[in-house]
């Protein structure tokens, strides 16, 4: 059995299910989704992406993630279903719960996979960027079960796969002790999240100074997009780490990725190269970013962004008036 694990129903759940369906078909395995959440809302949506079974572990304590209750519950469910492959999104949830599960079951775990495949014997081929994103490594877990992997959100395509006979199973949850105690929650400021944005305007040191980053926010708000950043920009504290795209930041896959003043270090490319359309703006005609771009503009990045703001802004005024 392939088990996909998440604490919410979101894009990453659908991406993982879509991919896992293909793996399950190839290896003739059953596919189950384990939802550990405080609500059953929208659970029907999961059925559209091909699970044979949806296992629900619903409890009000699953409102916010904490390791103790999630770990003890997941362990019980693992013991009951003995999955051969377990997949979870590489979010703060997956990247905390999965290592704890791997340690508990004395098995291997591969972090941040960007490609998955399965052979006839049911071995999961887990591929991830290695050595600072310079190469890809394929990793297997030959003798231990379950085989576990976290997967970068935004990497896999969402494919609908309707089944008529999806089975819903509700697990009983008991003794949810937690050594840690949640004191308060403060939501992060809204605005399109990088991971969900259709258009990302990403800025690099080519914008020359911190003040110039403002133009990227203007453009992003005009196009209902989000602002990303290169590592150099985050290191210089022009923007917070939340904006960082790349190996040590976020992997994004928007419809349009605009790399403004970013030269394109491999670490950055690793986080954005699967974007649908990549627009690179750089003064240096030989910047590596042009090698992965569809459209390249050789010019000052600040100037080009200002031009885009002007043209798109004008158009907004017209349609508004």
């Amino acid at each position: 059995m392939i088990l996909v694990l998440n604490n919410k129903i979101d894009r990453s759940s659908f991406e993982l299910l879509s991919k896992a369906r293909k793996l399950a078909d190839k290896a003739s395995m059953k596919l189950a989704f384990l939802l550990m959440s405080n609500s059953k809302k929208d659970v029907q949506q999961l059925a559209r992406f091909g699970p044979d079974m949806i296992v629900l572990a619903v409890h009000e304590k699953f409102n916010r993630f904490s390791l103790d209750p999630f770990l003890s519950t997941a362990k019980k469910i693992f013991a009951k279903y003995s999955p051969s492959i377990v997949l979870a999104p590489a979010t703060t949830f997956g990247r905390t719960l999965m290592p704890a599960l791997a340690a508990s079951f004395r098995t291997g775990l591969t972090a941040d996979c960007t490609e998955l495949d399965v052979d006839e014997k049911g071995n999961l081929l887990q591929t991830r960027p290695a050595i600072g994103g310079n190469v890809m490594a394929t990793i297997v877990t030959p003798t231990h079960r379950p085989q576990m992997a976290t997967v970068r959100p935004g990497v896999f395509e969402i494919v609908e796969h309707r089944k008529d006979d999806v089975q819903f199973i509700e697990e009983r949850i008991e003794d949810l002790s937690d050594r840690c105690q949640l004191i308060s929650v403060e939501p992060k400021q809204a605005g399109a999240r990088l991971e969900d944005a259709k258009i990302i305007v990403s800025v690099g040191k080519g914008l020359r100074k911190k003040e110039n980053v403002e133009v990227a926010f203007k453009l992003a708000s005009l196009v209902k997009g989000a602002v990303g950043a290169s590592r150099a920009v985050v290191d210089a504290r022009w923007l917070s780490h939340d904006h960082q795209v790349g190996l040590s930041g976020k992997t994004v896959k928007p419809r349009i990725y605009i790399a403004a003043g970013i030269s394109g270090a491999v670490q950055h490319l690793a986080g954005m190269q699967t974007s649908e359309i990549i627009v690179a703006i750089n003064k240096d005609r030989y910047a590596p970013i042009f090698k992965v771009a569809d459209i390249g503009i050789v010019a000052d990045a600040y100037w080009v962004l200002s031009e885009l703001v002007q043209r798109l802004g004008r158009e907004n005024d017209e349609s508004g008036g």
Binding site: T107, G108, A137, T138, T141, K291, V292, A293, D294
Partner: peptide, 16 residues
Amino acid sequence: PTRVVKVFNTKIARNC
């Protein structure tokens, strides 16, 4: 438990 079975270079090329 895990084994690296293959290491390969990523090929990134688009027609810019």
